[in-house]
Simulated assay, not measured.
Amino acid sequence: MKINSLKDKTKGKLSPAFGIKKTRRSEVNYCPPYLTGESDVSLEKLRVELLLDVKKRNNRDVVRMKMEKTFAFRRYEVVRDTPMIQDFQERWPALFEVNEINAEFKRITTMPLQSRFLSQLDVLSDKLLKLFEKRGGQIGKRLERILAPMTQDDDVDTGRECVLKGLCVYLNEDPANLVREFVAEDVAAIKESIEDTMVGIFVVKHDATSRPEDMGIVLEGLQILQGLDNAALAAAMLFGLLYVLNLNYPPELKHTFEVLQKVVMELDGTTLSKKAQVLKNRL
């Protein structure tokens, strides 16, 4: 209510209906109040302390405690100010690592991120694969190519990656917009492509057939995370960051992320687009 109040509007944009902030994706703690006894001054002091704490070794417990205390302060900043990713990362560097993304997502939704994302993907994989096999036409042929690595490699991570890419294709979206693969030697092309990417996962390989040498997440042309183990984990972290940073789903992948949210994670699964509802019914 405070964020949406007229006196809290940005100067020069005083329409009551301008820039209304509201939950869109089942955020339980979309913009929670400060803890009792805390203020902007005390929480800003903790934020500054965190800048030093993250540089210390074996200091995870202290960082976790202070991140928990500053959650409402940080969330208010994200929702009200919609900062650029680079600026926000400089202010909250502790947030941009796997454990803290998991923790922040749970603070927002009360639901675990990584464990639920991967387990639910595994639960739905067999049914999704059956749907993919039944699809004909050009999409069916694309799905065959996407799923081909599963016949050569029974690794669970390979299977999850193929299912995620297949989901994009089944929803008539391009998996290259989700996962972008590069050859390690082409450094200039990698840098240029990352700078042009608003939202996505990057994978660096020695050659087209080798296993990834590096994998991470790009937001607003910046490498936010690096050194992730597999594409499914990267997809989970990307999904979590869209919640953590209160970002819209990229238009070219809006159906894929809607299905990940409402069908896989079961967050607000009662109101679906026609395309997502058809998929859910078939499952």
Rank of each mutant, 00 (worst) to 15 (best):
N58D: 15
N58I: 03
N58A: 11
N58L: 13
N59E: 03
N59L: 06
N59Q: 08
R60W: 10
R60M: 09
D61E: 12
D61L: 13
V62L: 13
V62N: 12
V62Y: 07
V62A: 12
V63K: 09
V63T: 10
R64I: 08
R64W: 01
R64F: 08
M65G: 10
M65K: 15
M65P: 00
M65W: 03
K66S: 04
K66E: 12
M67W: 02
M67V: 00
E68C: 09
E68Y: 11
E68S: 12
E68I: 04
K69R: 15
K69G: 01
K69V: 10
T70G: 03
T70V: 12
T70R: 03
F71P: 11
F71W: 09
F71I: 05
F71Y: 15
F71E: 06
A72V: 03
A72G: 02
A72Q: 07
A72E: 01
A72M: 06
F73Y: 15
R74G: 01
R74L: 07
R74F: 08
R74Q: 11
R74C: 07
R75H: 02
R75I: 02
R75P: 06
R75L: 03
R75W: 06
Y76E: 13
Y76N: 11
Y76H: 12
Y76P: 00
Y76W: 14
Y76L: 12
E77D: 14
E77F: 09
E77W: 09
E77I: 07
V78Y: 05
V78P: 09
V78C: 08
V79M: 06
V79W: 03
R80N: 13
R80T: 08
R80D: 13
R80E: 13
R80H: 11
D81K: 07
D81V: 00
T82K: 15
T82I: 04
P83R: 02
P83G: 04
P83W: 02
P83N: 05
P83M: 01
P83F: 01
M84Q: 14
M84K: 14
M84Y: 13
M84E: 15
M84D: 15
M84S: 14
I85S: 06
I85A: 09
I85L: 09
I85F: 09
I85G: 01
Q86H: 11
Q86D: 11
D87E: 10
D87R: 02
D87N: 12
D87C: 04
D87S: 08
D87A: 05
F88A: 06
F88C: 03
F88Y: 14
F88K: 00
F88T: 03
F88E: 02
Q89P: 00
Q89I: 07
E90T: 05
E90S: 11
E90N: 10
E90G: 14
E90A: 09
R91H: 12
R91A: 15
R91E: 14
R91V: 04
R91F: 05
R91N: 13
W92N: 05
P93Y: 09
P93S: 06
P93D: 02
P93H: 08
A94V: 03
A94H: 10
A94S: 11
A94W: 15
L95K: 05
L95D: 04
L95A: 10
F96R: 01
F96L: 01
F96Q: 02
F96S: 01
F96V: 08
E97I: 04
E97W: 01
E97Y: 04
E97Q: 15
E97C: 13
E97A: 09
